[in-house]
Every structure is written in C-alpha cells, then in structure tokens.
C-alpha cells in the first residue's frame, strides 16, 4: 500500500466517491450485484476512495434477521473487493462500508476500511459502533453488542477514523479521533428522517448537517458522510450524504432519499490551513489532560465509577 504521492500519506489531493445506496431489504446478493454496476460507473473516472453507508447492502432495520445476514469482516471485505475487481480489474482503490458483523458469534454494527490492490482485499480497520441507539424507533442493543474502542488508522490517503451514525452525535467521539491524529472522519450512517413541522428541510437532516459542519470546523477535519436511502417499513432513510471540508463548508451534498453517487476531491492541505487559522485542536491537546484527569468526572477508577459503584 503505497502512499499517494512522494510526500507521504495524506499529502496529496485525492478523489472520492460516496455511494448513497438504497438497498432491497435483506437481499445481500442482489444488492452486491447492483453495487458492482455502480463500481463500474465509478471506475470510469480516477477514484481513490469509495465510501458507503451503514448497513449499505442489507438495509438497516433487520430485527432478528441480523443474525442471518451478518458476515465476518474478512468475508465482507472479500465480497467488496471482488465486486470492484470484477469490473475495474486490478486498479487500486480504498473502500469504506458499513455492514452487520458476525465476529465468532458476537454481532456488531460495523464498518470496514479496506485497500484493494490486484485482486486482494487488505482490511486496514474494522470499527464497531460504540453508541447503539436503543430508544424510540431504534432497537440496536436488543440485537447487537457495543464496540468498545475508537481507533484511528493509517491509510495511503492519510490518517482516518470511522464513526458510525450516533457515534458522531457524541462530540467527545470525533474529539478523541481528532486528538488521536485523524484528519479524515468517515461516517457511514442510516438516519430515519423526521420533523416536517417547519423549515425547508427535515428537522433531522438540519440537525445532522449542523453536527457535521460544526465538528469539521472545530477540529479541522474532512468529514465524509454516507447516508443510507429509501423507505424501510414507513421509515424513510434520508440519504443526504455529503462531504464537509475542514472549514465546515459543504463540498457536495446529495438530495433526500434516492440512490446517488457523489464525487469530490479532498485536499489535505486545506486541513493544515484551517488548523492554522483556527487552532482549536492544538489548544485542546494542551488542555485535554486537565479535563480528562479531573477527579470529579464520573469515570470508573480502579474498577469503580465516581459514585463508588
């Protein structure tokens, strides 16, 4: 896995495609076939990274069927690599995609990042969703286990982190990712839209956009948000995929609901400029230890939390 350009990983602009999928519920093979056609379309232009949504090839609300459709990360990565290579030959690409993971009988809502070269899939990272929404319309923790670690990882495009859907709603998560060196946050998501009372957009979409833009601008990171699309039993997945630059600006954004391919160029030099202009991340690095080591924080110490439980 050679870095793009001679200056090292993450130094050169690269080309990105987001595939906003609208899968048929539970029809993994059929959805993979459809993705192969999209990969052929994407391969007509230089593409360094392809990002897909949460549960991109199964649909999101699976209930008990999640146990039938969950895959080992290596097997899922192999399926993606074969789909790419089948239509684009040996052209190298990186792919990030959400899926339901079966890890030795424990089930996670995960995202895999792989580098495809030749016909081989090199899994660089698997992120297991930390925050499983289990309230209202959501019921993830009834079926799935929580991920316990947030890791950043090196790619030929620079250091990245993946945060799945609600993960990024907790501002501490992208904060930790940025402090740990991530310059690119990849956010696969499946967001059921709601809120039609006022405004020109769904309230949930406005909220998402606000979180993504403020997070990108606070830490000086690119955010690639890939949203699942289509109705699932009356619940409309908003799509609304987008790329946000390190200034908080929207580079490209998809409309509601439908299947789309979005394209954008990511220029890592923008990250350095944004951080030099507004050095919040540098300030945070200096103060974070003081904040986190504060003994009043309810963090378990020595096996007990601050309340002594």
């Amino acid at each position: 896995m050679e870095p793009l350009g001679s200056e090292g990983p993450g130094a050169r602009p690269f080309d990105l495609a987001i595939v906003q999928t609208k899968p048929r519920k539970g029809r993994y093979g059929e959805n993979l076939d459809a993705l192969r056609e999209v990969f052929a379309q994407i391969g007509e232009r230089p593409t360094d990274l392809v990002v897909l949504p949460e549960a991109a090839l199964t649909g999101y609300f699976l209930e008990g069927a999640v146990y039938e459709l969950a895959l080992a990360a290596d097997n899922f990565a192999t399926d993606l690599a074969r789909a790419w290579c089948g239509v684009n030959g040996g052209r190298a690409v990186d792919i990030a995609c959400g899926f339901y993971e079966n890890f030795e009988g424990t089930y996670y809502n995960s995202a895999v990042y792989l580098h495809v070269e030749g016909t081989a899939a090199h899994v660089l990272h698997v992120h297991r969703k930390l925050f499983l929404p289990t309230y209202g319309v959501f019921d993830e923790e009834r079926f799935l286990s929580r991920g316990r670690r947030l890791q950043t990882f090196e790619t030929r495009l620079g250091r990245a982190a993946m945060l799945i859907c609600e993960d990024i709603w907790h501002s501490i998560v992208p904060t930790v990712a940025a402090v740990k060196g991530a310059r690119l946050l990849i956010v696969p998501s499946a967001a059921p839209g709601r809120g039609v009372e006022s405004g020109d957009e769904l309230a949930s979409v406005v909220r998402w956009r606000s979180i993504l833009q403020s997070t990108a601008a606070e830490h000086g990171v690119y955010i690639v948000y890939a949203g699942l699309a289509g109705f699932e039993g009356g619940k409309g997945m908003t799509g609304s995929s987008c790329v946000v630059d390190p200034w908080g600006g929207i580079v490209v954004a998809a409309p509601l609901l439908g299947a789309f391919v979005l394209r954008a160029q990511i220029d890592p030099r923008e990250i350095d400029l944004a951080r030099a202009t507004l050095p919040l991340l540098g300030d945070l690095r200096a103060v974070l230890p003081d904040l986190l080591l504060d003994e009043e924080l309810p963090i378990p110490r020595g096996g007990r939390d601050a309340a002594g439980h």
């Binding site: 839209g193 039609v196 009372e197 006022s198 405004g199 020109d200 109705f231 009356g234 409309g236």
Partner: peptide, 15 residues
C-alpha cells in the same frame, strides 16, 4: 402543530 406542507408532500410521495 404546524406543517411544512411542501416538504411533507414530497416525503409522502416518495413513501
């Protein structure tokens, strides 16, 4: 409760 009727109509047509 209020409603952005145009937004709701587009959403329901897609549904």
């Amino acid at each position: 409760p209020s409603l952005n009727a145009g937004l709701a109509a587009r959403w329901l047509e897609a549904f």
